[in-house]
Design a protein around this nucleic acid. Structure first.
Lengths: 253, 253
DNA sequence: CGTATTCTTGATGGACATCAAGATACGTGG
DNA sequence: CCACGTATCTTGATGTCCATCAAGAATACG
């Protein structure tokens, strides 16, 4: 028996079928009864609280996880103890695929706020995928997108200035946080400045300074973790390096 | 008809079955006749010469490609024209998976030396994978490994010093260039210093200087593109940052 | 051979890190 | 509700690693 979520009590028995975010999560194209069967294999555990670890780097890979709600960061730890955040994940994003090849999770994933994830054991995934080709396509698409995103980050870390990195980061967050693909004006960042800096290969002071500068140039309004994009075009121009930098607020008026 | 390589002439009709590197390439576990059928779908074209482009960023995604022999670099181009190398590929490495989600290749791949690649159209892949589960597993493993490798690069670019990056790069090349998993002492780098620098988020002068320094410290012997690792332990220590830097050859003896 | 490309080496500069300290927000218990 | 301690964020002064600029040396190549 592969399908094994029946026996265990104490887990929230919310079904994917009734989940409002279903269409971002379980692949489209499943027929009604197929959907039902896949849905039955997905476990919904108690949500994780801020700071709780969802996967630990090095732990045995067992399951793919889809973020249902909340916000997650993932980071690798190098041999000398340095941490590098490799991704932020929100509703619909998939955790754990890096474990498929090695059998161990490749990073530690940690909830940045109260977060619930839907878990599908890889065993069950394999069972599904052999019956429903659309599941296969879903995972390939997911992984392909992760590869693209990481390559974009390589470009950011390898070639872009601190200001460009911040601009791209904000635009990306704004876009991902809107349900649709269009960026929204005001976002509430769930992560600290330290996390942002770490993700972008900078230090916290640099992030702080640049946010201040972008505000002084009327491109952003920064209120702690709430950021409003006041001039999308100029922010995009900075991200693309298609203009000179914005003015470096020395003894400004 | 999915299988379509019969009609076309002018392609080298080398069969995977007879390929010495087969076990690094087509997935193990295929039965004899399965192997035969998969093999028939794989096209072997005329090799690419140095500088020729194998895929162009933005072109329509049609096929997965496995490097049979030779050496390939791939790079993205940002909106302002900056290039960032995102990977080097050698025998057995797979190109093109990033195109699965978008339908377009995500980078330009270019031969660094005479290179032959084996091409499997994604259509045919899907046909295979639905019949031979081991093919599915093969692609998932491949993509999972690419994700891991890119995340390691994120750590390099985000947190490591120039010297650490070079050390890690050389160790990685040495390991990958040996048929087995153990590093070999002498490697011949197929890429220029400029490419190395670009890949590592540095400039060519920095790479040159650091190689010189590593040589002065008896860790390497550098002869143009031929590099011998004389002290693997110290090189590893530098890569891991588990010692202080090696001596910065000021007016040295 | 002569020209181009790649690689090395030196001198100088700048972007971002580090060090230091104050300001603001946050949580907790009285 | 306020007092107090702590974590987060901001701002300034200084330092450093690596980029930039410049030019020579070694190799490749027609």
């Amino acid at each position: 028996m592969l399908i094994d979520n029946k026996g265990s009590s104490r887990q929230l028995v919310e079904k994917c079928i009734t989940c409002p975010g279903m269409r971002h999560c379980l692949p489209h194209g499943l027929k009604g009864n197929e959907m039902e069967r896949v849905s039955d294999m997905v476990k919904h555990r108690r949500p994780f609280q801020r700071g709780e670890q969802i996967t630990m780097m090095g732990d045995e890979f067992t399951s793919l996880m889809v973020v249902h709600s909340g916000f997650v960061k993932s980071y690798k730890v190098s041999r000398d103890g340095e941490q590098q955040i490799v991704g932020f994940y929100m509703s619909g994003d998939v955790l754990g695929v890096e474990g498929i090849s090695t059998g161990n999770y490749g990073y530690t994933a940690e909830a940045l706020e109260t977060t619930s994830v839907c878990t599908l054991s890889f065993r069950n995934y394999e069972y599904c995928s052999s019956h429903f080709p659309v599941m296969q396509k879903w995972l390939l698409n997911t992984m392909s997108r992760q590869i693209i995103d990481e390559q974009k980050m390589l470009l950011m870390l390898g070639k872009m200035s601190a200001e460009q990195r911040i601009a791209n980061f904000l635009l990306d967050m704004s876009r991902r946080m809107s349900a649709s693909g269009t960026s929204i004006q005001t976002i509430r960042l769930p992560m600290s400045r330290i996390d942002i800096a770490n993700y972008l290969g900078l230090v916290v002071e640099t992030v702080s300074r640049l946010l201040t500068r972008l505000q002084a140039n009327d491109i952003l309004i920064v209120k702690r973790r709430v950021i409003s994009i006041m001039d999308l075009n100029r922010l995009q121009a900075i991200a693309d390096n298609s203009i000179e930098d914005c003015h470096p607020l020395h003894h400004a008026a």
